[in-house]
């Protein structure tokens, strides 16, 4: 098996681990925030759900380094697609916000980015494979 495939398997596993740990931590954080709305330490506590993702990002970086040149290219193109898509969407929403639609929390920015990244990966694969 290629190093690339091994690294992908490890990365895939980390995505699931992070999703599960993140959901648990997020639930905990929301409860804590409601219980102690004024505590000074709530900011550092609020960002704890990102800890599992640090490992996922690390696993992705290792995976990227082990990708062959075409897979690296496709990965970069997927990012570029998602970048353009996110920038356009947030740009457009700026106008809707101005016209009176409610502000959306930044909370929802990263799921949008993740979804566009996924679509970008699909588009890049169609182009090259």
């Amino acid at each position: 098996m290629l190093d690339q495939d091994v690294a992908k398997r490890i990365y895939d596993r980390w995505v699931w681990v992070a999703l599960i740990v993140y959901s648990g931590l997020l639930g905990g954080v929301i409860t804590v925030m409601q219980t102690y709305p004024d505590a000074a330490w709530r900011y550092p506590v609020a960002i704890t759900p990102m800890i599992p993702w640090v490992f996922t990002v690390g696993a992705y970086v290792r995976y990227f380094r082990r990708m062959d040149e075409l897979h690296q290219r496709m990965a970069l193109e997927a990012f570029a697609f998602a970048f353009a898509g996110t920038a356009l969407l947030t740009f457009t929403y700026g106008f809707l916000d101005f016209a009176g639609l409610p502000r959306i929390n930044w909370w929802f920015v990263w799921p949008v980015m993740g979804t566009l990244w996924f679509i970008g990966g699909f588009v890049a694969r169609r182009r090259w494979l």
Partner: peptide
């Protein structure tokens, strides 16, 4: 040491190594 998909993309002329 590259993926099978990359071999295929080179053979079909879609990708220049």
């Amino acid at each position: 040491g590259v993926s099978r998909q990359t071999i295929n993309a080179i053979e079909t002329g879609k990708y220049d190594p």
